[in-house]
Design a protein around this nucleic acid. Structure first.
Lengths: 164, 164
DNA sequence: TCCAATCGGGACTGAATTGGTCCCCTATCG
DNA sequence: CGATAGGGGACCAATTCAGTCCCGATTGGA
């Protein structure tokens, strides 16, 4: 289903929460605010700190804070923080080892174009956008309406694989 | 790492191969041409047929053929054929049940914007683009050897992703 | 000077998903 | 009527993911 990890999902939730209240808060506080289990918050925060999106203060009265204003944190940054470089396939440019089967890459660098397109799309949306209070209580905006609209378009929550 | 399934990767390989030689070919022939194991080709093809990207002919002398010209098959179509609707999170529009924890969706429909952006990016690239002979790939175009027999296999196209 | 509060880095385990194979049925051609 | 080819799952092994926990390092305050 082409989805991000649940941990990444958590990361976004946490970041949104941090963007809304920019105070230094400890992991357990953020956990209490968001409903995400404390150990999970800690785990996600480690990744966010490592990737430079969040600043941490250690010791008593320590906690976490956004490293940059929310406008300068893109969705791409969040995903990359948790899942590494954005690449739909393992076949990316810096693959020093050629694919084991030559016949596999007759499309060679074509995936890179796809990766770039996706990355660009994800760089165009920021944490500030995600943290913005939704205009309507429920979702009503966004009418994608490009293609696929006819009937499909809908995954159930917890959508599983196509077949089952 | 935000990647597609391996089966989807195979699907693209298979489709590219079909786009380049538009003859009706049996699964085992396509398998021989691409190096993908026969049962896997069969499995992928089933999904492609079900989603309407590929036409199949049964019976003796049967086989597969693209249902549309490659220019009208988008990368988004291929991904959706194998993985269902494109949505980065399970939290999509038609989720009739609110997320189990209210605090989880303070961003409400913001993910939809992201999903739409990604989908649009993937709709902008077609199978024809992927099938185009690469101008300057990294790996000098290797001759289409029919399956590296050796049995080595060891499928290690894995590249980054180990970072986290 | 200690102690308590917090973060940092992994290790570890159970569960879920994926990948790949196989079996049997149906359809078509010669 | 037999051989060839796809259709639809069922099935198991392997990989990956999610979540928890432990211990060391750091800091502020009593």
């Amino acid at each position: 289903m082409f989805r991000i990890n649940k941990l990444t999902d958590y990361a976004v939730v946490l970041l949104v929460d941090m963007a809304r209240s920019d105070r230094v808060r400890a992991a357990h506080q953020i956990a209490a605010d968001t409903g995400v289990p404390v150990p999970t918050v800690a785990k996600v925060m480690k990744a966010l700190v490592r990737s430079g999106l969040v600043r941490s203060t250690r010791g008593a009265a320590g906690g976490y804070l956004l490293a940059r204003p929310a406008e300068r944190i893109a969705v791409a940054d969040m995903i990359q923080a948790l899942e590494g470089p954005i690449a739909l396939t393992a076949c990316v440019e810096d693959a020093d080892e050629t694919c084991d089967r030559e016949t596999f890459c007759p499309m060679a660098g074509h995936w890179n174009r796809v990766n770039a397109a996706v990355r660009r799309a994800l760089e165009g949306i920021t944490l500030a956008d995600m943290a913005a209070e939704p205009a309507s209580p429920h979702w009503s905006t966004t009418a994608p309406a490009s293609r696929a609209a006819g009937g499909g378009e809908a995954g159930e929550r917890r959508v599983s694989m196509a077949s089952s």
